[in-house]
């Protein structure tokens, strides 16, 4: 059958379900879509799969307010009732924020994303980590300034390659309630894990990052 509609389902990911990784989350969604009985389209071929695309992978442990799925459908659906139907079938922590119709043909958001914003909360970090001393807001701001003053910052990426990430960082700002806001450029779909950036910025060990809360806030098209 041919798809007659395409929709974007926007959702957030919060709480313990942060610990369900990207691939597992895809399967969790597939099952939820099936339980919700949405008329999803399947790909042709030997092993038909649900025709859709997911927002770029979110690192394990990150919360997000910006995830989405773009889904092809064999039948037109009623948007408002479908939101409810799908929400009923989702595990706790996954919340449908919105569903909107998309043109049937057209590029996926995935290729339009230029920048991702993250909110990084340090409150728990200073409460629980083993980092000695009480940092002040000014300390952090100082560290951010030093960090941004550098022209090159080489970090090791997932594949073990040394990459200069400085050009990827649009801004880092200290905001209220111990939040850092990070704007990170996406280059060729390459999404550098902010955890490594924050680790270097704060100058701490990986284990100390356990209590830093990372939230993906937004995908930007500029």
């Amino acid at each position: 059958m041919n798809s007659v509609q395409r929709v974007r389902i926007e959702y957030s990911k919060k709480g313990p379900i942060r610990y369900i990784g990207h691939l597992d989350l895809i399967h969790t969604f597939f099952r939820a879509l099936k339980r919700a009985n949405l008329p999803v389209s399947y790909t042709q071929g030997f092993n038909p799969r649900i025709k859709c695309s997911f927002s770029p992978a979110l690192p394990l442990g990150f919360a997000s307010e910006a995830e989405y799925i773009e889904l092809y459908l064999d039948k037109k659906i009623d948007i408002s009732s479908s939101i409810g139907n799908l929400q009923k079938e989702l595990p706790q922590g996954l919340t449908v924020r919105d569903m909107e119709k998309l043109p049937l043909f057209g590029k996926s958001n995935n290729v339009k994303i230029k920048t991702v914003t993250y909110r990084i909360n340090l409150q728990q970090f200073f409460g629980k980590s083993t980092v000695p001393g009480q940092a002040s807001k000014e300390d952090i701001e100082g560290k951010i300034r030093n960090f941004l003053d550098k022209e090159e910052i080489f970090l090791i990426n997932k594949k073990g390659r040394r990459v200069n990430i400085r050009p990827l960082i649009l801004s880092i700002e200290m905001e209220k309630d111990w939040n850092i806001r990070l704007l990170l450029k996406v280059r060729g779909g390459f999404n550098f894990n902010p955890r490594i950036i924050i680790k270097t910025l704060l100058g701490v060990e990986k284990k100390d990052l356990a209590f830093v809360e990372f939230t993906r806030e937004k995908f930007l098209f500029w």
Binding site: I17, Y19, I20, G21, G61, P91, Q92, K207, L209, A210
Partner: peptide, 12 residues
Amino acid sequence: PFVSKPGRYLGN
């Protein structure tokens, strides 16, 4: 945050 495959222990 300190364990591998934390999804095992969620009970969700």
